[in-house]
Design a protein around this nucleic acid. Structure first.
Lengths: 192, 192
DNA sequence: TTCGCTTTTTATCATTTGTTAATGCTTTCT
DNA sequence: AGAAAGCATTAACAAATGATAAAAAGCGAA
């Protein structure tokens, strides 16, 4: 349990520093969940009213269009912050799915509980702003990534952003994230 | 001046409804600026501490890499909301540029003035959340756009998103936004 | 292990996109 | 008007990517 709390503190510190007191308090409000490989934490179309932090494991976030095609939008390595609930929902229904690609440990809290706590502690407010800034900047980077790089360049960037990812998860998800076909990805990987 | 205020009200209502009273109040705090074609409202690398709303005209948002290559990230048709200051800056310095592609009219306000006013009126808080949600969703759409569509598909989508844009601004910016070369864009336009 | 299923690679061909360069068309400025 | 600069199109070729299908490799369950 001490390890869990350490991981928890680390995820939070990636966004903004929190005092030990507030960290203790907020930690006590979270529920720790074990997620089996293949199961979904958040599901597209479903009601969801929680905030999440990934402590350990590996997840991917994707949308599914009318034809059933999944597009992977992001990867969550260990110690990642989820998109905030209010951004990823329409009328409380999720617009995307987050699925475990390996067995994972997630910390979850109700949005209203978190919101109420936030009102009491200014540092949690700063924390939340920081989450949004990081989210926006990461999306901005993704746009530049897609608009300026070819398949080869995107694969190189992916390798920097997520070291070892090719040995961790099925390549289909990587191809989807890069916006290329499985066949193209295979070619790029086996070429010089 | 009555027209200006009407445009102002319309931009705001695109995010979240505001009561006439708060709208009047907030309007009085803004400064209305005429922007000549080609000049920059926000400049990459420069200190900036304002929030902006585009009343009329047409803008584009871009970043410039070390080599001087510009990548257009977004277009702002008349009555658009800018990315919030806190998202588009690092230590108060802008990480992107917004430039007028036609003569434009912009409403501007200091971030701290806006922030203070927001604290007093809950509806402005809702408004700000709404701006962020719209921002995030628009970035999400852009990622899906790039990851799932070919040049042809992206051009078709652009035409839906920004009707008439091809007759309004230089095609270079459009090609950059689509992540293709000027030559490819020209080909796609004159084909089929 | 062996079987069956999924994932990945390989091959072939068609299509798209990039690169380079030349041309023609506007626009702008003097 | 004329010159200069910027913008858009076209052409020709090279390179990258997609589509399809088949083979190979990996994985899990009985």
């Amino acid at each position: 349990m001490a390890e869990i709390k350490k991981l928890f503190a680390q995820v939070f510190s990636k966004n903004a520093p929190l005092s030990p007191r507030v960290l203790d308090l907020i930690f006590s409000l979270f529920k720790i969940c074990i997620i089996e490989k293949g199961s979904e934490i958040v599901s597209q179309g479903r009601i969801n009213s929680k905030e999440y932090f990934l402590l350990s494991g590996f997840l991917h976030e994707f949308t599914c269009d009318e034809k059933g095609n999944e597009t992977t939008l992001d990867f969550y390595p260990a110690q990642s912050t989820f998109v905030p609930n209010f951004c990823r929902t329409n009328n409380n229904r999720s617009i995307l799915t987050v699925r475990a690609l390996t067995k994972s440990v997630v910390a979850e809290i109700d949005t209203t509980v978190f919101g109420n706590t936030r009102k009491k502690y200014a540092e949690l407010d700063t924390f939340s702003s920081s989450v949004i800034i990081n989210l926006y900047k990461s999306k901005l980077q993704k746009q530049i990534f897609h608009a300026t790089k070819s398949g080869k360049g995107k694969l190189e960037q992916l390798r920097k952003d997520y070291p070892g990812i090719e040995n961790k998860i099925p390549l289909t998800y990587i191809a989807s994230y890069l916006g290329i076909t499985n066949v193209s990805l295979s070619r790029l990987r086996n070429k010089k």
